Simulated assay, not measured.
Amino acid sequence: MADLSKTFIEFNDIIYLTNDKKTDLRKSRAVIREDIVKYFNEKRDKHTVKFKGQGSLSMNTCILPLSGEYDVDDGVYIFGKEEDKPTVATAHSWICDALNGKKIIDKNTCIRVICDNEYHVDLPIYYKTDKKENEFFWDDKDVPELAHKSKGWIESDPYEFKKWFEGKAKDKPQLKRIVRYLKAWSDNKSHLNLPSGMVFTILAANNYVVKDRDDEALLETLKAIQQNIDDTRFILASYVCKRPTVDKRENLLAKYSADTRKKNFLDELNGFIESGKKALELKSKKDACAKWQKHLGERRFPCSNVVEDDETLAKAFSHQDVLRYDNKSA
């Protein structure tokens, strides 16, 4: 059985954001925050503003995408009285005005700031009443409301999601690596519009199978995910991924349920699993690596660094049914 645990750890290092890159991102985020604070201090006497990082950077599951443009999510929390709550459009306009001069896109759920074509900062806007404004405001029992341009003010609590995931991943660095591998798989198959990073984070956390080796843990976690959501192959499965925090009723797979999109996702998931099974059965590390590389990407999954020892190689050649370096089958 080919052991590619070292190759997966090397792959994690390739897709992982370095500490220097994270520092650069946080510096850019700080400049944006300063502009917004200045605007509120000068223009908004009935409201104050605070911030809380969210998303994959704050959960340490972010990856460097193939496009080279990665994103940072930074929650903007506007505080004020209930009677002074602005409309969603007004809240968006305040943040746009605060960032006048920067390249921005006013999206449905956030303001996106484009930074040097290497990354962007997404700024979802929340409203909180002035009941308990302090540096730990995110622990308040009151659920923040997100400024959604098509749905209005809706309850949303990304910090609760972060706490939920951190609880799942406590003392389990392998789980965070599994999430990164799944995101890298989705990134490599971007033309198929596979589910979002949040969906894969939830699916991985709810179906994580602990193994000593990352290749085995990834395969077993993929199989557990499939058995739970692939209702085309498993009778007891349900094509559902519920958000673990507000809104817990929301099925995040619903927007990936159109016939073609769902079929593409489940077929790719099945193909990934079949390749993983074959990879673990092979004696040749290079043959096994080619199976994984088919799904995780030739540009980044480091098969060229795999070293075969003579004894393993001889055993691989002794079996006529082994096809070497074939990454075209499952």
Rank of each mutant, 00 (worst) to 15 (best):
Leu64Ile: 07
Lys128Gly: 09
Ile111Leu: 01
Phe11Gln: 00
Tyr325Lys: 03
Ala98Trp: 07
Leu269Ala: 05
Glu34Tyr: 15
Gly80Gln: 09
Ser275Met: 02
Asp267Trp: 02
Asp214Ser: 15
Arg180Ala: 14
Tyr70Gln: 10
Glu274Phe: 01
Ile78Met: 01
Trp94Ala: 02
Asp97Ser: 14
Val31Gly: 07
Glu82Tyr: 13
Asn305Gln: 12
Lys189Ser: 12
Trp153His: 06
Pro195Met: 01
Lys172His: 13
Asp130Tyr: 06
His319Trp: 05
Gly55Leu: 14
Phe136Ile: 12
Ser284Met: 06
Asp71His: 15
Gly68His: 04
Ile202Pro: 06
Phe272Ile: 01
Leu123Gly: 09
Trp185Ile: 03
Glu311Thr: 13
Glu135Cys: 05
Ala316Asn: 10
Glu160Val: 06
Glu216Phe: 14
Phe301Gln: 06
Asp230Phe: 01
Phe8Asp: 13
Cys303Arg: 04
Lys163Cys: 00
Asp259Phe: 06
Trp292Ser: 07
Phe136Cys: 05
Thr109Asp: 09
Thr201Trp: 09
Lys151His: 12
Lys223Ser: 04
Lys223Gly: 03
Ala288His: 14
Asn251Ile: 03
Val246Ile: 14
Leu175Gln: 12
Arg180Lys: 14
Asp215Leu: 10
Phe79Ser: 14
Lys132Trp: 12
Asp20Val: 13
Asp142Phe: 12
Asp71Ile: 07
Pro158Asn: 05
Cys96Phe: 12
Leu123Glu: 08
Val72Ser: 09
Asn188Phe: 12
Arg33Val: 00
Lys163Asp: 02
